[in-house]
Design a binder for these strands. Sequence first.
DNA 1: GACAGTTTGTAACTAATGTTACATAGTGTG
DNA 2: CACACTATGTAACATTAGTTACAAACTGTC
Lengths: 209, 209
Amino acid sequence: MKEALQVILKEAGIEQALIEEIQKVGVSKKAESGGIVITPGSTSMYMPFVIEGLLSVVRQDKDGNEILLYYLEGGETCAMSLACCIEGKKNDFKVTAEDDSILWMVPMNYLDQWIQNYKSFRKYVFSSYQIRFDELLETIDSITFLKLYERLYKYLLDKKQATKSYEIKMSHEQIALHLNTSRVVVSRLLKQLENEGKIEIERNKISIL
Amino acid sequence: MKEALQVILKEAGIEQALIEEIQKVGVSKKAESGGIVITPGSTSMYMPFVIEGLLSVVRQDKDGNEILLYYLEGGETCAMSLACCIEGKKNDFKVTAEDDSILWMVPMNYLDQWIQNYKSFRKYVFSSYQIRFDELLETIDSITFLKLYERLYKYLLDKKQATKSYEIKMSHEQIALHLNTSRVVVSRLLKQLENEGKIEIERNKISIL
DNA sequence: GACAGTTTGTAACTAATGTTACATAGTGTG
DNA sequence: CACACTATGTAACATTAGTTACAAACTGTC
């Protein structure tokens, strides 16, 4: 576990002294595929590093409708969660494990001193914020400027990239939830994508061609 | 100018020593109502503080369609601009003065040392990030979960709050641009809001009742 | 292989939003 | 006040997306 963390933090440009601190004060946490990691309305006390796996960050409205904001992959941290912690605010999003995942949870109270003392940590944190802004903006772009048909195709391509697999193992219902639309509409548009030779549909599986 | 800055930074919890530094190294910049302050594709070298006025931050797509992300008011800074600078990336949004505005532009190269040395500045920066995340999420909520009719009404209420005036001096065309829809649709829905007694429509002016 | 549960396909319809086209009304300037 | 310009009103229609309803196909379990 700690070796995997070491590799990932090194990769992220964190200096050795800080890596050792992070290893010392954090704890690992497993999340099984489909499990909820952060519940909306909760307050986190930990900065979560993704060591391995894939998580989705989703926004919910009061009626339970959802929209996918972005994925968290290995080596990344959830900047919004970080932002919430620092301000002591409640999380207003949901984080779910898309695959079996392993996280490294670091108590928030170390953050301020690390930001003060380690330039590499400042860089990492600000880069994380930047990445999340970009992802949110891209999400806004998709919702605003694309037709659902295009959004769906982009969704599939993004998922392909995140999982590094051209086979997407999801039901139409699950996809519909991420896009805030209905199953019937997703089926309709998927069929259209299939007719245009872009994908192949099987039960619980879509292959990108 | 510097006195106004003093008041605003004090308000924001910045300590006196840092206020003086900020006053020393920054320059003021005026923006006339309607003027473009940040062009998409440019790279900023300055952290912009809003001393006075109101600015809009807008996302554009390749065809020139737009969507309003949020407003910047007095005392605020553009966290996304900050994030871009720190990472040396191009701005991928547009900032326009909605009213005559005054900004205080601080060269980016001071940021890292201030973050390192001033706890109050760390707080301010992280709080700015948090606020912008919240605003982006709220924008996503509106686009995703609201009908255009509700979004339009929310738009008017937000504008009312930002300008602290129940009279909104805009054409339907301008509103349509901020919501990424067409003038005809805006006129139609505004008429509906008027019929329901929520607003009053005049040429270049909408009054919130 | 019978059954229940889940997933997908499809038609028919409704609702929301976008588009085109044109009429009317206000505004500023000579 | 004539003119050009801008802004708004409205109808008619097109497109996109959402909804309802039901059939068919697949999957796992007894």
